[in-house]
Design a protein around this nucleic acid. Structure first.
Length: 148
DNA sequence: GCCAACGTTGGC
DNA sequence: GCCAACGTTGGC
């Protein structure tokens, strides 16, 4: 799951109550569907810093709630406000994500050097989805071999 | 349903 | 700041 550290960084997450955050602001249907239809409480999450000086995996987290309507879609003053969403028929959903641990950054450059990860969705050319599923073998490789 | 125009993402 | 890639919008 990608987050821009200027918005919510791994250190921001570590300071939040319960080290947990609502994954608000997703406005892409495919990414929304991953949260709404596929994520389960306890699923592992790689917390990825994007659109920043050092992009890469900054921490390990887990899904800590099932999906529920993203509150920002109803807030006229929020940049994620969606005039087409209503309380009765919300359009956007988010899960909560809870920090497990911050790790030494695994840079995008390093990720690209491991053949075990060459099919990883988020590394594919042209991929812009902020949320992508991981193959269990990719999760295993990263958590067992790339965390110092 | 097509598709041009436009907006966004995100690495570099 | 550039720009490739891709998603969304809306006229027709």
């Amino acid at each position: 799951m990608k987050s821009e550290p200027s918005d919510v960084s791994i250190d921001d997450l570590s300071k939040l109550p319960d080290q947990s955050v609502a994954w608000y602001g997703v406005r892409n249907y495919q990414a929304r569907n991953f949260m709404r239809d596929q994520m389960r409480v306890g699923d592992g999450v790689l917390f990825y810093h994007s659109n920043c000086k050092e992009p890469g995996i900054a921490g390990i987290a887990q899904v800590s709630s099932t999906a529920y309507p993203d509150a920002t879609q109803f807030d006229q003053n929020n940049k994620y406000f969606d005039p087409k969403a209503t309380q009765e028929t919300p359009r956007w959903f988010n899960v909560d994500v809870k920090l497990i641990k911050k790790i030494a950054l695994i840079s995008l450059d390093e990720l690209r050097h491991h053949p075990e990860l060459e099919r990883m969705r988020t590394l594919q050319r042209g991929n812009r989805l902020s949320i992508t599923p991981l193959d269990p073998s990719e999760w295993e490789f990263i958590t067992e071999h790339l965390i110092k």
